[in-house]
C-alpha cells in the first residue's frame, strides 16, 4: 500500500476520534481549504483553568485532513488552550509521518488552522503558515 495511506492514517480518517459537535461549548470555529473544498469545524469545552476538557470535530475532506484532525483532537484533551495554540506545525506534519507535497501540506494543517485562527485570528495563522517574521 502507498505510504500516504498507511494504516494509522486510514484508521484515524475512517474512525475519527472525538467526532460530533459539542453543545454547549466555549470554542467554535470553522475553516475551509479553498483549494479542494475540505471543511473542518472544531468545538471545545474549556474549563475555568483554561484546560481543554472535551473536543468535538465535524467536517468532511480527504483522508489526510480528517486524520490530522482526529490525531490533533486526541492531543488536545487535557492540554491548556494557551499551549495548544503554540503547537508547532512541524509536529503535526511529523505525526502524519509521510512526506507531503505543498498542496497536501494544506490538507494536513487544516486542523491546526481551525484551532489557531479560532483562537488567535487569521493573521497569526498566516504568519505560521508562511514561516515569515
Amino acid at each position: 500500500m502507498h505510504d500516504l495511506y498507511r494504516e494509522i492514517i486510514l484508521d484515524h480518517a475512517q474512525n475519527g476520534r472525538n467526532w460530533g459537535l459539542l453543545e454547549p461549548n466555549n470554542f467554535d470555529h470553522e475553516e475551509h481549504n479553498p483549494l479542494c473544498g475540505d471543511r473542518l469545524r472544531l468545538t471545545l469545552r474549556i474549563d475555568d483553568d483554561g484546560i481543554i476538557q472535551e473536543v468535538g470535530w465535524d467536517g468532511n475532506g480527504c483522508a489526510i485532513s480528517q486524520a490530522s484532525a482526529s490525531m490533533l483532537g486526541e492531543r488536545l484533551i487535557g492540554m491548556p488552550l494557551q499551549n495548544a495554540l503554540k503547537i508547532d506545525k512541524q509536529e503535526i506534519l511529523d505525526e502524519i509521518g509521510i512526506p507531503l507535497t505543498i498542496n497536501r501540506v494544506k490538507c494536513a494543517l487544516l486542523s491546526l488552522k481551525v484551532l489557531v485562527v479560532g483562537g488567535l485570528g487569521k493573521r497569526e495563522w498566516e504568519r505560521i503558515e508562511d514561516d515569515e517574521d
Binding site: L35, C36, T101, I102, N103, R104
Partner: peptide, 17 residues
C-alpha cells in the same frame, strides 16, 4: 496551479508560488 494533487500540478504550484 493550486488545484491538482498530481505531481505536475504540485511542481507548477511550487514554481508559481
Amino acid at each position: 496551479v493550486h488545484r491538482g494533487i498530481h505531481k505536475l500540478s504540485e511542481e507548477a504550484t511550487q514554481a508559481y508560488e
